[in-house]
Amino acid sequence: MSRSLSIFGATGSVGEQTLDLVRRNRADWNVVALTANSNVAALADTAREFAAEVAVVADERHLDDLRDALAGSGIEAAAGRSALCEAAARPVDMTVAAIVGCAGLGPVMAAIEQSGTIALANKEALVSAGEVMTAAVDRHGATLLPVDSEHNAIFQCLQGGELADVRSITLTASGGPLRLVEDLSAVTPEQAIAHPNWDMGAKISVDSATMFNKGLELIEAHHLFPVGLDRIRIVVHPQSVIHSMVEYRDGSTLAQLGPSDMRVPIASCLAWPARMDTPMAPLDLPAIGEMSFFAPDEVRFPATRLAREAAQAGGAAPAVLNAANEIAVAAFLDRKIPFSRIALLVEDVLNQGDLPSPPQTLEDVLRVDEDARALAMRMLEPA
């Protein structure tokens, strides 16, 4: 019997890899909604291939183009933020939430309110609205399955275990493409997005280079696996073979190993609580040879320190950190600021006056996000 599926961010890296798995198991899935930011051609082609019920483009300027591309298909076309949330509100067996950044928060919340199962690849949503989102999950009886390779690894290591028995959780980090680069001020966008192990989009690749990706993942893990911030650790593991580890109070440590391909954690979520085939070759440990581990360098890469401090502060601090980082990364990719200023801008925004009151609703979170973005933009302006 086929299951119904919606994919938000269908033309991005995670969305495309999800569709690859669905394509290989076509009889198992009935695609309901597909969305993209502005890539109308890819969205329309994908919607036609999978006979989706609705295709939504976030940028309203492209609605006419989408309608033209879907003409005669019987597939509904829509555009804009409200249309994304309306599509997410359509009941399905599983929603893959892969919109990058805080822009994905509204659709995630709409999917949660349908009491469905959400495969969450949008870490920024949980970072910005952790308490609000987890409360909504409890209230509506929804299920969150983590797609991030690290959190999916922890999820797998915890199956059959109790959080009360956990001594510590260790998130592994590749260290990104710049771990051994001496002059970070001269780094170009091309260097920052050239990840040695993972094939990811530009924003998350830059986050990996700055280590903000790992900082955001620390906050995400704090909400998904509430063992206490002092029990969540980060270790740099350049080979990206071990994706995370869980240590139990009896001294046992469970680690999840796998290839550096997002189709593995995506498949884990799609098939949960069962398993499914993927096209990945088995790990060849003799070929890998050696695995190494290092403590993060929080002097050269202060992002993990800033994220931990924001998590400890709680309230609006994580949302402010995430918003400032999104603005800083966009400015770097547009060659407006050097790589070395990304973390400095985030820290300046966090330290600029009193933080807003802790958000209680989605609207509160979005207001904090908007204000923090505006502040970051003002701080980017020439003196």
Rank of each mutant, 00 (worst) to 15 (best):
A209G: 09
E49P: 00
V320D: 07
P382N: 02
L5I: 10
E60K: 14
I7F: 00
C102R: 14
G258S: 02
D68Q: 13
I169T: 04
A88T: 11
D45Y: 03
N25F: 00
S73C: 04
W198G: 11
G258T: 05
T188S: 15
A121G: 15
S149V: 08
V147F: 09
A47Y: 00
A372H: 00
W29G: 11
D148M: 06
L145I: 03
P196E: 03
S4C: 12
A310R: 09
E124C: 08
A135D: 13
L366W: 09
V137P: 13
S205Y: 02
V14L: 09
A119Q: 04
A311S: 09
V32L: 04
A267K: 13
S168D: 10
L66W: 03
R3E: 12
A295Y: 01
V235F: 00
S268L: 12
R3A: 13
G315V: 09
T304E: 00
S128M: 04
L254P: 12
N122S: 05
P358C: 03
R48D: 01
L5M: 07
R308H: 02
E53R: 15
K336S: 14
S244Q: 01
A33H: 13
P196T: 06
D284F: 02
T278R: 05
L105M: 02
I118Y: 10
A173T: 02
S128V: 01
I232N: 08
I232H: 04
K336M: 15
D148G: 03
A372S: 12
A173M: 03
V166K: 07
P282I: 00
G106F: 02
F339E: 06
P107Y: 05
A310Q: 06
E247R: 12
T117D: 09
Q360W: 02
A281M: 04
